[in-house]
């Protein structure tokens, strides 16, 4: 027996968006580490600092390599589905997760768009419930706006007893 894949997927440009934003973050991180190496050299910090810096650099290089593989894998793993009663989302590379949220428990829906996402005409959707918050990253603009409207509409109903 297997879990079924859900109906909708993310925008096909999601891997590109993620790769670009990850690369920017990684470059900044790398710059910081290089800066620390310079400080280490300039102020002749003790040896143990060298090992910590080595660890940091190995870690960030591994992170860089991973950031080239991760977006595609994550894109393939992401899916979502919704109807009048439930929102379902599913994602995860090493550990796959399926989340079911009753519409009545959704409290706020918002769309977010950064400069890179704007370039690709996508938006991400943040869903806040009574106990948690989930984000669907990068949906095509029209789909995202439609989803926001639909969720807002379906989530209007509230249960007795709240």
């Amino acid at each position: 027996m297997e879990y079924k894949k859900l109906e909708h997927t993310l925008s096909p440009s999601f891997p590109k968006i993620k790769l670009i934003s990850d690369t920017i973050i990684n470059l900044v991180g790398l710059l910081v580490v290089v800066g620390l190496f310079w400080l280490y050299d300039y102020f002749s910090w003790p040896t143990w600092a060298f090992w910590i810096l080595m660890f940091l650099i190995v870690f960030s290089i591994l992170g860089c390599i991973w950031s080239f593989i991760e977006p595609t894998l994550l894109y393939r793993s992401w899916s979502y589905q919704y109807d009048h009663n439930y929102l379902q989302i599913s994602f995860g590379i090493m550990k796959k997760q399926w989340i079911t949220i009753p519409m009545t428990k959704i409290q706020a829906v918002s769309t977010i768009q950064g400069p890179i996402m704007q370039r690709f005409n996508t938006r991400s959707i943040k869903i806040e419930t009574m106990g948690s918050a989930h984000t669907i990253p990068a949906l095509e603009e029209s789909i995202a706006l439609q989803l926001r409207e639909d969720l807002a509409e379906y989530a209007k109903l509230k249960e007795v007893d709240e």
């Binding site: 027996m1 879990y3 995860g92 090493m94 550990k95 796959k96 997760q97 399926w98 989340i99 079911t100 949220i101 009753p102 428990k105 419930t129 009574m130 106990g131 948690s132």
Partner: peptide, 30 residues
């Protein structure tokens, strides 16, 4: 108020899963 099902690679191999529930409380009871 929310259900989560998850499966790691190891769990998938043995066909087992984990379930997480959430209840209303302050903070939410997981």
């Amino acid at each position: 108020i929310e259900m989560k099902y998850s499966q790691t690679r190891l769990q998938k191999y043995f066909e087992v899963s984990s379930i997480t529930t959430m209840n209303r409380s302050n903070p939410p009871h997981v």
